[in-house]
Amino acid sequence: MTPFQRLVLDPTTVKEPPTRDARPGPSPSNLPPATGTKLHPFNPGAENASLRFIGNATTVLEWEGIRLMTDPNFLHKGDHVHLGPGVTAERLQNPAVDLHELPRIDVVLLSHYHEDHFDRKVEDSLRRSLPIISTPHAKEHLSSKPGDGEAFTNVYALDTFQSMMVDIKRHDNPASIGGKGHKMPAMKVTAMPGKHVPTGIATTLNDFVKAVPPTNGWMLELGYIPPSPSVAIDKDTDPFECGYRIYISGDTLMVDELKEIPHRYQGQRIDLMLIHLGGTTIPSPSMPLLMVTMDAAQGIQLLQLVKPDVTIPIHFDDYNVFTSPLSDFEKAVKEAGLEGKVVYLDRQEDYRFNVKK
């Protein structure tokens, strides 16, 4: 059994850009200004955190001075990714910001090792010491890259329902590094089930050819822990107090394994869901043999299963292998009477929310 893992972040001491091949000149200190800001549909107020939609499944979360980036994919319109033997996809939309224009990133949350979520440009460019939380499969590849200085050195692997803690210690804020009576901000990351390939013959074949990598969803909990370094946080003794809970579906289909999520979090509010849609079909839309991400109908089923307070759809129109556009989901949301539960973000827009203390 993998020991409970902990990562300590201090954004006040990290000066490096997220890429090791940064362009000349100073690195930006912030993301470009948002083109728009969305709030809770019916209960806004006291917002102290934000989520920026960059494109595809790439988002940047900012809270308590840290920046967490999901599934970095920064290819441009017309670029191609390799998705498996004989399967490629063309990017149809540009990301909201270029990879080399990113400000400091403190940690990456990677759902799976697939080029439309971690493209070759990203893999070549990212700083090797940048913390990455992902699947065991991704860690195996990223930590063993051949060549001097090519292996990623700070990769954490989580299997389904395994958790780790990310402590946030800021040296410009004494309360966050152990001030008496003060709580310290932290993030609890738990791997959620996900299945990128339908159960049955397709799974058996994929297990053999290993074309589609294993994937995680995530439960990302933002909250606070006591400041004492003597407190041992593990799955049995967990003093963490959650102030906001985000479920990220990852590239999954609507499978039975997902039913365990509302069971495990029964009585615990899921404030936000980032849902990967698109109805990704391989090898191509002209030869739709296999759907490997949720379409609109499955997306509605997941909303009704998990019952998040708010849902934001992502991963729906960036590549030509997507066959279920966002308009399909919008129509299904209206038909299900769930309009007040969904917020739609354009690229470069923020969703701002409140993490309770």
Results as ranks from 00 to 15, higher is better:
residue 330 E to H: 12
residue 345 L to C: 06
residue 113 Y to W: 12
residue 354 N to D: 04
residue 7 L to N: 08
residue 281 T to R: 00
residue 236 D to V: 07
residue 145 K to H: 05
residue 338 L to P: 03
residue 296 A to N: 03
residue 32 P to K: 04
residue 278 G to Y: 08
residue 304 Q to W: 05
residue 133 I to A: 04
residue 308 P to V: 09
residue 135 T to S: 12
residue 276 H to T: 14
residue 342 V to I: 02
residue 255 V to P: 05
residue 283 P to S: 02
residue 112 H to C: 15
residue 66 I to R: 04
residue 273 M to V: 09
residue 183 K to P: 08
residue 33 P to K: 10
residue 256 D to Q: 11
residue 234 D to A: 08
residue 92 L to R: 15
residue 116 D to T: 06
residue 18 P to L: 14
residue 142 L to N: 05
residue 45 G to C: 08
residue 328 D to L: 03
residue 291 M to P: 03
residue 43 N to W: 10
residue 240 F to A: 03
residue 276 H to N: 14
residue 319 Y to I: 13
residue 19 T to K: 00
residue 254 M to A: 10
residue 340 G to T: 11
residue 246 I to P: 06
residue 300 I to M: 02
residue 250 G to E: 06
residue 155 V to A: 08
residue 341 K to G: 12
residue 36 G to R: 02
residue 131 P to C: 07
residue 277 L to S: 05
residue 149 G to M: 08
residue 104 R to I: 00
residue 195 K to M: 08
residue 341 K to I: 03
residue 116 D to Y: 06
residue 91 R to F: 01
residue 149 G to V: 09
residue 339 E to T: 15
residue 174 P to G: 01
residue 330 E to Q: 15
residue 350 D to G: 01
residue 111 S to T: 14
residue 89 A to R: 04
residue 343 V to Y: 05
residue 155 V to E: 01
residue 265 Y to W: 11
residue 198 P to V: 13
residue 341 K to R: 14
residue 196 H to A: 10
residue 265 Y to M: 08
residue 161 F to C: 09
residue 29 S to A: 07
residue 1 M to F: 09
residue 308 P to T: 12
residue 199 T to G: 07
residue 159 D to N: 14
residue 55 G to N: 08
residue 67 R to E: 00
residue 301 Q to E: 11
residue 342 V to E: 00
residue 354 N to M: 06
residue 57 A to W: 02
residue 168 I to V: 13
residue 257 E to A: 14
residue 328 D to P: 03
residue 166 V to A: 09
residue 242 C to Y: 09
residue 355 V to W: 05
residue 292 V to P: 04
residue 355 V to E: 05
residue 139 K to L: 14
residue 240 F to E: 01
residue 162 Q to N: 09
residue 121 K to M: 12
residue 215 T to P: 03
residue 244 Y to F: 15
residue 14 V to E: 10
residue 65 G to A: 04
residue 21 D to W: 13
residue 99 L to H: 02
residue 216 N to S: 06
residue 185 P to Y: 09
residue 176 S to R: 07
residue 308 P to G: 13
residue 148 D to Q: 13
residue 108 V to P: 05
residue 98 D to H: 07
residue 69 M to G: 04
residue 175 A to Q: 13
residue 49 A to I: 04
residue 336 A to P: 03
residue 249 S to P: 07
residue 145 K to S: 11
residue 35 T to G: 07
residue 172 D to C: 01
residue 124 D to L: 15
residue 72 P to I: 01
residue 124 D to S: 15
residue 46 A to Q: 15
residue 207 D to V: 03
residue 85 P to A: 09
residue 258 L to R: 06
residue 252 T to V: 06
residue 134 S to A: 15
residue 168 I to R: 00
residue 206 N to S: 07
residue 30 N to D: 09
residue 123 E to R: 13
residue 355 V to H: 03
residue 17 P to F: 02
residue 26 P to N: 00
residue 352 R to C: 10
residue 11 P to Y: 01
residue 232 A to H: 13
residue 183 K to Q: 14
residue 291 M to R: 15
residue 12 T to I: 01
residue 345 L to I: 04
residue 229 P to H: 09
residue 350 D to H: 05
residue 343 V to I: 14
residue 118 F to A: 12
residue 73 N to L: 13
residue 21 D to C: 11
residue 324 S to W: 08
residue 55 G to E: 01
residue 270 I to M: 15
residue 210 K to R: 15
